[in-house]
Design a protein around this nucleic acid. Structure first.
Lengths: 110, 110
DNA sequence: TTATTCTACAACCAAATGGTTGTAGATGAG
DNA sequence: CTCATCTACAACCATTTGGTTGTAGAATAA
């Protein structure tokens, strides 16, 4: 039963964005500082167009923003997506811990 | 520059597994308690075989384990994958915070 | 035993993904 | 102005993904 479709689609895009090593590496780089798309592309064994696509995926997932500066497009980390992903995993973690505690209690009583 | 290919493939599988609303819902359910595959399948508007495949994806990502009990296959949460995902996002978060602090310092000095 | 339930797995299909090359427009440098 | 650089985007291709149906085996129930 899948309820909140907006949130679902958002999380789909978010985790899908993380599901590629090149994109994770881009996130690491732009989290530490600014990069133009072509500067990013220098680091990977693939075409500029491929890197462009990866950046677009990260942008749709709200993990990254692009800003035109002269003829360059500057890519920067956008904290929102990262926070949303963390929050979801924290929810799982919290449910898990509650369950673990409950089981521990039952074992302690028994 | 993509270094640790084993870790990369593992994280690919992990985040790919999260990148589907049905699979996230399965994780939520089995984190809270036990489910057989057919019990899980009751909750989704898709075939049993489709749910079977989703569980297999979660299993390959170390988010879930299956254990045969009679004719049923019991699906349980496996905490490892969840922890690895959280750790990676925490790393990003930490890099981000360091950078934010650094920028704050620069602004404070200037 | 026979029928039902639960699972496994193959074959198939449409759409999405991750890559390529090629073309074209803006901007900056000489 | 001219040339090199940076980006956008289309077209194409192979593979993966997320779904289906169908068949078959193992375990439980009657």
């Amino acid at each position: 039963m899948v309820v909140d479709e907006l949130r679902d689609a958002e999380l789909d895009r978010l985790f899908q964005a993380f599901a590629d090593a090149t994109r994770r590496d881009i996130v690491t780089r732009v989290t530490a500082g600014e990069y133009s798309v072509s500067r990013l592309a220098e680091h990977y064994a693939m075409s500029f167009a491929a890197v462009q696509k990866h950046v677009a995926v990260l942008e749709r997932a709200s993990l990254v923003t692009k800003e035109k500066r002269g003829r360059e497009q500057i890519v920067r980390a956008h904290h929102d997506g990262l926070q949303r992903a963390r929050r979801l995993l924290d929810e799982y973690e919290s449910i898990w811990r509650q369950r673990a505690d409950r089981i521990a209690d039952i074992l302690a009583e028994g």
